[in-house]
Design a protein around this nucleic acid. Structure first.
Lengths: 137, 137
DNA sequence: TCTTGAACCTGTAGCAACTACAGAGCCTAA
DNA sequence: TTAGGCTCTGTAGTTGCTACAGGTTCAAGA
């Protein structure tokens, strides 16, 4: 068995490149408590392991789904301390889904109005600019 | 003719209340150059006129449509200096419409994935939490 | 072994678009 | 006249990064 076989640690630039994360953002996630503090070399350089990489990927995927850092913190806490109870995880995700749907509704409202005024501006049938008119109404 | 009839000026709290704008935001829009500096009373209090109110409403409506402050600045410049040429106004609006549509597409992608995992979490058919699994993939 | 240049370290500032506070001053109605 | 509710200024906080300065360490080549 090769349990605890010492895997070659990753420098910050390496973990950043492998995950596609910005170099500075890696340190930022550590600062805000999403990524655990990695061990250091004698000179003080961070030495990341496979678990850090795994966790960083988790964070980045969650960000792609639009989760806030607070929500991600909550999800990671569920993972770390409770072995990820599906019901609670689902609650976090469902609440976030609601937020996403609200935002879509907001943006669609904007889209409708904008399409409308752009079309009116385009056809040149009005002496005054319809968008400006609409905003000054 | 009652040109320049002295309309009773508005205090900051009054213009805020009438437009629905946050009190502090009124001052903020002045600071960033969207709202012109109003005349002051002897004691230094701002005294807004009808034109300020009109302009503030314009800004707030544009914000509701998702325009950035830079875009609103550009629109107001077109209004102030060029009498709002419809073609240029339309360009600003069309570009913004594109941004809005991009955001909608992003959010819909998130929505699709989230709906999916929430449904999988809900039906309890998997031993591990599907959302957590998906994020750690 | 020495050197050099890349990568790292910390702390801080900047972005958007507000929002909120502290500590001071003004204004008006009773 | 005075109370208390405005207003004033400047600054700090929010979210989620991103970028810099000025200094240190590391690793590869000579």
């Amino acid at each position: 068995m090769t349990v605890h076989a010492p895997v070659k640690p990753l420098q910050r630039a390496e973990i950043a490149k492998r995950t596609g994360c910005n170099l500075e953002t890696v340190r930022y996630y550590e600062k805000v408590g999403l990524l655990p503090e990695p061990p250091r070399t004698q000179g003080g350089h961070r030495a990341y392991g496979a678990e850090h990489e795994r966790r960083l990927r988790f964070i980045l995927r969650a960000r792609e789904l639009g989760f806030t850092l607070d929500e991600i913190r909550a999800l990671l806490l569920l993972v770390d301390e409770r072995n990820a109870p599906c019901g609670q995880v689902r609650n976090v995700a469902a609440a976030h889904l609601g937020d996403v749907q609200d935002k879509i509704a907001d943006l669609k409202r904007m889209e409708r109005v904008l399409k409308d005024v752009v079309a009116q501006c385009a056809d040149g049938s009005r002496p005054e600019c319809p968008l400006i008119e609409a905003l000054f109404r």
